[in-house]
Design a protein around this nucleic acid. Structure first.
Lengths: 211, 211
DNA sequence: TAGATTGTTAATCGATTAACAATC
DNA sequence: TAGATTGTTAATCGATTAACAATC
């Protein structure tokens, strides 16, 4: 659903990766075409919603036929910007930072992983996957010299907000934040907060309600 | 917002952990009372929405005064079920499983971490924080003998769905799922899916749109 | 051409915001 | 009592669903 001002509802945006995943699976199973009705059965969204969502970005289907799986997959990839890679760093080489550095799935699109940083001298110099943990003192120089645009924040809560300020200052344009603070978007800088604790508390709520 | 059937909108539910966090901070700063207007400034939600949200669960405030921070914090904790601990296991002792095992913040409420499992014999027997990785073959016995109710799935995608079936069979009542599959809720079993890839793709979308 | 299914407009439903009477 | 702020109802806004004409 596109709003009057041209902006797109976050509800729609958060469904896009789901479409992407389902279409990818369909593609892998060599499905060539799919109707909104069939997609509805797979995704659990209504056919009507699917057509509305897709038409936010353009008419990707053919009347009387449906959607070409390959073409639709490519189009959604492009809408998501997954055809572009961004030079990225991880800040904070604790367990979570290391987990992200090691998960190859995240590098399939979007992330072009260039480095990982920490302040702890016991950690600096250690190998994490294909990278060596660098001293956070050199982060400014590294961002500037390598035109890094994305930072993944895996630091403790206490330092995350200040760190984000600095990173933006150094030229970072997108932050994937795992520290439990809500970093606020600002002009030209995109922010995606992942709050694992909040997610856990929702599970707690659901279980509490279920008994 | 409570619906006619008594169920509560997930929009409201997902705001509850945020209230919890802000109130916790206020409590830590020794703030005693707060009005919906002040809370609005802190949270970014409208005062009206805050009052609506809270009144879904009961009248926690006092007219002319506002809300007692301590009392409200306790009430939201209780609504979230954070006063109850659930015996929990992690399934999959890869990087992510280890990261979760090591993050003490998750054990502050709700999770009573009892064990971690893997199928890989190179990993079984290793120490992860205060636990030793156990063989997944013994998972059924362990769940039954220890009355485990929560499982955290940190396995690869390919095995997650089947694993979830088994876990539910063995008596698990809540699943915190990090594998990139959407596990569906069923009666008596609560499921919270964390899709990190989806989150990353949303960041990609936002950056793509921003340029 | 007839059948199918989209794109799109209209109707409905739900969530948020505004307003204000109740009351501390 | 007067002032403040809740709880709650009403109004608005936005998102989802339904319907159907356009068209492949």
């Amino acid at each position: 659903m596109k709003k009057d001002d041209g902006s797109i509802s976050m509800n729609v945006v958060r469904r896009l990766p789901k479409y992407h995943r389902f279409l990818r699976e369909l593609k892998a199973s060599s499905v060539v075409k799919i109707s909104s009705k069939e997609l509805s059965e797979i995704t659990g969204f209504t056919a009507s919603q699917i057509r509305q969502d897709l038409n936010t970005f353009g008419g990707f289907g053919k009347q009387g036929y449906g959607y070409d799986v390959n073409k639709l997959y490519k189009q959604i990839s492009k809408i998501l910007g997954l055809n572009v890679r961004h030079k990225s760093i991880i800040v904070g080489a604790g367990h979570l930072g290391q987990a992200i550095a090691n998960y190859s799935g995240f590098r399939e699109y979007f992330l072009d992983m260039k480095g990982i940083f920490d302040i702890d001298h016991d950690v600096i110099g250690r190998k994490v996957n294909d990278m060596t943990v660098m001293d956070e003192n050199y982060i400014k120089a590294f961002i500037e010299e390598n035109s890094i645009t994305v930072a993944i924040i895996c630091t403790p809560r206490s330092v995350a907000a200040d760190l984000a300020e600095k990173l933006i200052d150094y030229g970072i344009k997108g932050i994937w934040n795992f520290a439990p603070v809500n970093l606020e978007e600002r002009d030209g800088v995109s922010i995606e907060n992942v709050s694992l604790a909040e997610s856990l508390y929702v599970l707690s709520f659901l279980m509490n309600k279920n008994e």
